[in-house]
Amino acid sequence: MTTAFDPIDLAGTRLANRIAMAPMTRSRAGEGGTATELTAEYYAQRASAGLIITEGVQPSVVGQGYPWTPGLHSAEQVASWRKVTDAVHAAGGRIFAQLMHTGRIGHPVLLPDGLVPVGPSAIAAEGAHFTPEGMKDLVTPRELTGPEVRATIADHAAAARNAIEAGFDGVEVHGANGYLVQQFLAANSNRRTDEWGGSVENRIRFAVEVVKAVAAGIGAERTGLRISPANTLGSIAETDTEATYTALVDAIEPLGLAYLHVMEASSGIRELTLDLRKRFSGALILNAFTDGPTGPDALALVEDGTADVISYGQLFLANPDLPARLKAGGPFNAADRATFYGGGAKGYTDYPALTG
């Protein structure tokens, strides 16, 4: 019987186990959106994961939606990430960079030169957003023109090439959690009437073209995609979830990607997860709905064949040696929500290991 502690090969990337660290925004980037020595320490501490997927990294200036998040679109940023990848590899780990364009989720105060957030359509998400100037209402994004959509796809491919230059083992395209890719997928945030909107085929086009461009730039075997069907974050409302995601997975299946990463937004999505697994011949990484206090239970999903790899968020944030703790049955450190975003070492690199 296969267990979560057995190795696996992701299209050529050998993982020591089937326990992944899910991407988590931490808002601790240095000047100019660079990775820091503290960033390197944080990820190296967690190198016993079979795979680390980094926090969301913006592929362009306008792709930034949160304060103090890192990028992969400047030479300084690329050079800064090298210390992170070197540290993780020295500790025996494997690490993919997650490319995250937040689209309409953001605020002009986070962007330079009078830029404003962009989206598939000029439709604002509801609610307020944290900025260095405090909470501010989300703004109406500027609708991307057709040429700008193509340029945004190219930005993802360029950032993916930068990731490989920085020493990453691959990249994950962030198509989940209400950010730009999912904004194109959902009819309530995408009301375009051109080739990028309207029908399911048109609404999945941006996601498919981003994945194709990244795969062409760095190799499909180093490319993954994260999705979160029926996720309502960022005011997303999907009315045709099953049709959208089956069409999307069918479209990317021939590419030979390293993996598909599914984040389950609710317990009711499991049936769709199982359907997508049947449609996708590569590895399935699952951020199961059971993640959290019952996170260890998710390991059984590898044993019963539901997933190839299980990813953990908060448990990995608070437990740098999570695979060892899972194997031992605990104990587990509790995550300190007050230190999730921003700040320094506290709540970042000071969680103790079992042997610490």
Results as ranks from 00 to 15, higher is better:
D240L: 14
T241A: 12
E242A: 15
E242P: 09
E242G: 09
A243V: 02
A243F: 06
A243C: 02
A243T: 01
Y245Q: 06
Y245T: 02
T246E: 12
T246H: 00
A247N: 10
A247C: 08
L248A: 12
V249P: 00
V249W: 05
V249I: 15
D250N: 10
D250Q: 13
D250Y: 06
A251F: 06
I252P: 03
E253H: 09
P254G: 14
P254M: 14
P254T: 10
L255R: 11
A258Q: 09
Y259M: 09
Y259L: 08
H261S: 02
H261Q: 08
V262N: 04
M263S: 14
S267G: 15
S267W: 09
S267L: 11
G268R: 14
G268W: 12
G268S: 15
G268I: 11
G268D: 15
I269S: 00
L272G: 08
L272T: 02
L272R: 05
T273W: 03
T273L: 10
L274S: 13
D275W: 01
D275E: 15
D275P: 02
L276Q: 00
L276R: 01
L276P: 01
R277D: 14
R277L: 14
F280T: 00
F280M: 03
S281Y: 01
S281N: 12
G282E: 07
G282W: 06
G282K: 15
A283L: 01
A283D: 00
A283T: 07
A283S: 07
A283N: 00
L284V: 15
L284D: 07
I285P: 06
I285N: 04
L286P: 05
L286I: 03
N287D: 09
A288M: 05
F289S: 01
F289L: 00
T290N: 10
T290H: 10
G292Q: 11
G292I: 13
P293F: 12
G295W: 03
P296W: 08
P296Q: 08
A298N: 03
A298P: 03
A298V: 02
A300R: 02
A300H: 04
L301Y: 03
L301V: 04
V302Y: 00
V302R: 05
E303D: 09
D304N: 14
D304C: 12
D304Q: 12
G305L: 11
T306H: 07
T306G: 08
T306N: 09
T306S: 14
A307C: 10
A307H: 06
A307I: 08
D308C: 06
I310G: 01
Y312P: 11
G313E: 14
Q314F: 13
Q314V: 12
L315V: 09
F316D: 01
F316M: 15
F316S: 07
F316E: 05
L317H: 15
L317S: 10
N319V: 06
N319A: 11
N319T: 11
N319W: 07
L322Q: 06
A324M: 14
R325G: 07
L326T: 00
K327C: 04
K327H: 08
